[in-house]
Design a protein around this nucleic acid. Structure first.
Lengths: 146, 146
DNA sequence: TAAAAACGATTACAGTTGTAAACTAAGGTC
DNA sequence: GACCTTAGTTTACAACTGTAATCGTTTTTA
């Protein structure tokens, strides 16, 4: 089960996390260097985000000499999954299928990805329903007129 | 082509938009009533969001007597698509497939949805590549170790 | 017609976010 | 040992967000 992200991670903070997810363990210098190149952030900016991520509990800071070794407290996949959930929570369940179809049509995919998705889809075929139940409040989706 | 949302729509603002998308045209009262029921927002709160949406250009306000008739300046599907894009912009292209598979596996789908997705997937099969190109900065994804 | 209700506009105010400079303490360098 | 670099901490500050109260008008209602 995915980690519950009660606190939110912003897009900027995610940039920091990506470095840590990639490196496994990173010093602030590792992080600062990557983001200075990619986003032209000043070292102080990256450091602010590091501090906030530690405070939010997304980054672990292990003291090592006079500095810290940072590592992720949450997995990248879980985090992306949580972000995707947040998006889907904002739309009617009935629209989920269409939305996924949209994303799918625009995503760059490898043969392997296609294969994986096909497998999941096959499984879905067995459990699909005739009509997805609406999860909206009256007046907040067109289900009645569907 | 999807509308470019340079300005962002927050989750709270999207709640307002959903009412308008559903009703097509709405008065502030229509909106206030739905959100008062769903989110327990005070009328003033909903009105603040309405004002911000108008300023951001997501809502059109047509004067009608002493009030306004609100309508959406952007389609719901486009908006959801844009939001999905923003999410995918935050992850490595190589992860798109896996992420879609995750979302797919958790989404509530109807037979019709499954059919639609299967069609898109079939099309994808023809254009899938052997390996998706990484769109990351060095140090920000594990492509080198893939 | 005087009071009440409704509507939009203005103001408020704390918390979050993006962006960073300044400060401080520890370590390495000449 | 005096100084520069480095890492972390503190402070700054404007914009955006969530959450609303209040104000000024207009419209409805008793």
């Amino acid at each position: 089960m995915a980690v519950e992200e009660k606190v939110e991670m912003t897009a900027s903070e995610r940039e920091i996390m990506r470095v840590v997810w990639t490196l496994g363990e990173a010093t602030s210098k590792d992080i600062v260097d990557v983001l200075e190149a990619k986003k032209a952030w000043k070292p102080a900016t990256a450091k602010t985000f590091i501090g906030r991520l530690v405070k939010k509990g997304f980054l672990l800071a292990e003291p090592e000499g006079n500095k810290y070794i940072y590592s992720a407290a949450i997995g990248e996949e879980d985090s992306v999954k949580t972000a995707a959930h947040r998006l889907f929570d904002q739309i009617c369940h009935k629209q989920a299928g269409k939305t996924i179809a949209d994303m799918l049509s625009e995503a760059p995919l490898s043969h392997q990805d296609v294969e994986l998705i096909q497998q999941v889809l096959n499984d879905k075929k067995k459990h699909a329903v005739d009509e997805v139940a609406c999860n909206c409040v009256p007046g907040q989706c067109k289900c009645s007129t569907h």
